[in-house]
Amino acid sequence: MNIDLHFVKEIISSVLILMGVFFMLVAAIGLLRLPDFYTRMSAITKGATLGMGLIVLGIGVYFNDPEMMFKILAILFFTIITSPVAAHAITRTAIHKKVTFWKKTNLEEFEEYLRENRLKEYAGQKKYPKEPHNSIKRADDTE
C-alpha cells in the first residue's frame, strides 16, 4: 500500500487546470458568438470567473504551501466579490445608454422600469420626449 502522493497531487492539479481552461475557452468563444450585449455579459462573467478560479486552485494544490494557499484564497475571494459588482455596473450603464436588445428578447415585465427611468431622465425639462416610452431599439437578427 504505497501510493505516490506526489503523483496523485499532480493528477488532481492537472484535472482542475484543464477544466478551468475549458471554461475559459467557452467564455471566449461565447464572447465572439453570442448575439447581443446582454447575453454575452451574462455568459462571460461567470465563465471567466469559474475558469480562473479553477486554474488558480489547481496551481495552489500543486504548490501545497500554506503561504501560497493563503494568497490564492485571497485571489478567489476578491474575484468572487468583485466580478458580479462589475457586471451589475456595466449592465446598468448599458441600459441607461440604450444599448440594443436582441430581437427575441421578451421585455414585457421590464416596460415599467424603462418608463420610470425615461421619466426621471427628462424630469428636469418641460417637454417629455415625443416617441413612445417603450420604443427601445432592437438589434437586427444576426442569425
Partner: peptide, 19 residues
C-alpha cells in the same frame, strides 16, 4: 455553466432571453 457551454459549442442556440 455546463449547460451554457453546451449551448455555445453547438451551432444553433436554444435561448429565449427575457427580463
Amino acid at each position: 455553466n455546463l449547460k451554457i457551454a453546451y449551448d455555445i459549442m453547438t451551432p444553433r442556440y436554444f435561448m429565449n432571453p427575457a427580463i
